[in-house]
Design a protein around this nucleic acid. Structure first.
Lengths: 198, 198
DNA sequence: AGTGCCATGTAAGACGTTACATGATTTG
DNA sequence: CAAATCATGTAACGTCTTACATGGCACT
C-alpha cells in the first residue's frame, strides 16, 4: 500500500495531476528515495478517487483537460496515519555488491575497477545534484525534509569515500584478507577450470 | 535477468540446493544486498536447468531426496559475462524518507523521533551482525567480498551518525532551515485545516 | 512425542514496468 | 512548422511474494 501513500504525500504538498506526480518522482527530490511509472500512477489515482481519498478538479486550460487531484478529509487522515506508523526497514538491492561477492581471482581486476569508477561518477553527479537543489531557491523542502536531504548527501559522500579506498587497495594489491576456512575459493577455481576446459 | 544471475553466483561458490540458496539470501552475507523467496527460486532453478546453465545432481541423503545444482560450462560463461557488465545504479526505496519529506508541523515531532530511534536500533543490530560475521571464522568471504562488507559497515555507521545528529536537532528545536519560496507549507496547512474541519 | 529445521514445490494474485495510443500546447 | 513537452490513459507482460501442500530428519 505504500505507493498509494506516496501519492497521497505528493498531493498533500499541492494539488497535482498524474503528470506532475510522475515528474516529482523523476526529477525532483523524491527521485532519491522512490520511483514510479505512469502505468502505476493513473490506475492508482483512479482507485484512490473511487475510495474517497482524493477528488479531482478538472481544469480547462486552453481547450485541454487537466485533472488536478486534491486530498479529501479521509485522504488527510489516511496520510497522517501512515506517517505515524513506523516505516519498514528498506531492502537494498544493489548489483554491484552481488558482483563483488561473486568476484573471483580469475576475473580481471581492471574490470572491477572500472565498475567502481563508473559508480563513483554516477554518485558524484547525484551528489552535485542534491547539493544544488538543496539551495536552488525554488523547490519546496521543509525543515524535516532537509534532514532527509542531508542523509542522502552523507550516504553519497560515504559511498564515494569507500570507492576511493577500494580502488586504491585494488591498484596497490593491498586487498583486505579473505575469510575462507574451507578453501572454497580454491575449490571454486578447480570446478570452474574443469568445466571451462570441457 | 538479475535474479537468475544472483542464483548462478551463489551456486558458483559451491553446489547448492534451492533451500541452501534461500538461506544464503536470508541469513548470510548476501541478505544485505538482495532478497529472494522460494516462489522465485524453485521455478528459476527449473528454468536455468532447462536452458543448460545448471544441472542437478540428486543425492540420496538417508531416504530423502536432495537436488544439488551445479554450474555447466555455459553457466560459468554466463556468470562471468554478467560480472563483466557494469552494474546498474541501485534504486533505493525507503519509506522513512518519504515520510520525512511529507512531514509537516502539525504532526507530533516525538513520533518522528521514535521512528528515527527505531531505525537506529535496527541498523545497529545489523551493524553488529555484519561485524561479527566478517570475522566469525566460518563463512566464506573473498578479499573482494570483504570490500563489499566494508561498504555495508560504512553505510550503517553513516546512517547511525545521521540519526544521532537528527534526533539531537529535533530535541533542541535546532532544525535546518527550510526552502519554501512559495510558502507551500502555509498553504498546505490551510488546505489541511479546511478539510479536517469539514 | 513434539518441535523445529531441512527440503521441494505449486497456485493465486499483487504489483509494477514497458510499450503503445492519442492528442494539445509551447517554444525555437 | 517542427520538436519538445504537457497530458491522460490502457494492455500486455514479467516479476515476485504469500500461502498452501507435503513430508523426512534431528534433537530433546
Amino acid at each position: 500500500l505504500s505507493i498509494e501513500h506516496s501519492i497521497l504525500a505528493v498531493i498533500s504538498f499541492t494539488p497535482a495531476t498524474g503528470y506532475d506526480i510522475k515528474s516529482e518522482f523523476e526529477t525532483k527530490a523524491l527521485s532519491l528515495f522512490w520511483g514510479m511509472s505512469y502505468g502505476s500512477i493513473y490506475p492508482k489515482l483512479k482507485n484512490l478517487e473511487e475510495n474517497g481519498y482524493i477528488y479531482s478538479v478538472s481544469k480547462e486550460h486552453g481547450g485541454r483537460q487537466k485533472k488536478h487531484y486534491e486530498l479529501t478529509k479521509k485522504g488527510w487522515i489516511e496520510l497522517e496515519n501512515w506517517l505515524s506508523e513506523a516505516p519498514s526497514y528498506p531492502s537494498v538491492k544493489d548489483e554491484l555488491f552481488m558482483k563483488l561477492a561473486a568476484w573471483h581471482s580469475e576475473m580481471e581486476e581492471d574490470l572491477l575497477v572500472s565498475h567502481l569508477e563508473k559508480r563513483k561518477e554516477e554518485s558524484t553527479e547525484l551528489l552535485q545534484y542534491v547539493r544544488h537543489w538543496q539551495q536552488n531557491g525554488t523547490s519546496f523542502i521543509s525543515s524535516i525534509g532537509m534532514m532527509g536531504i542531508r542523509y542522502a548527501e552523507m550516504k553519497l559522500e560515504t559511498e564515494i569515500r569507500w570507492i576511493d579506498e577500494s580502488v586504491e587497495q585494488l591498484k596497490n594489491g593491498a586487498l583486505p584478507p579473505s575469510q575462507d576456512p574451507l578453501s572454497m575459493e580454491h575449490e571454486l577455481l578447480k570446478r570452474r577450470k574443469s568445466k571451462l576446459n570441457s
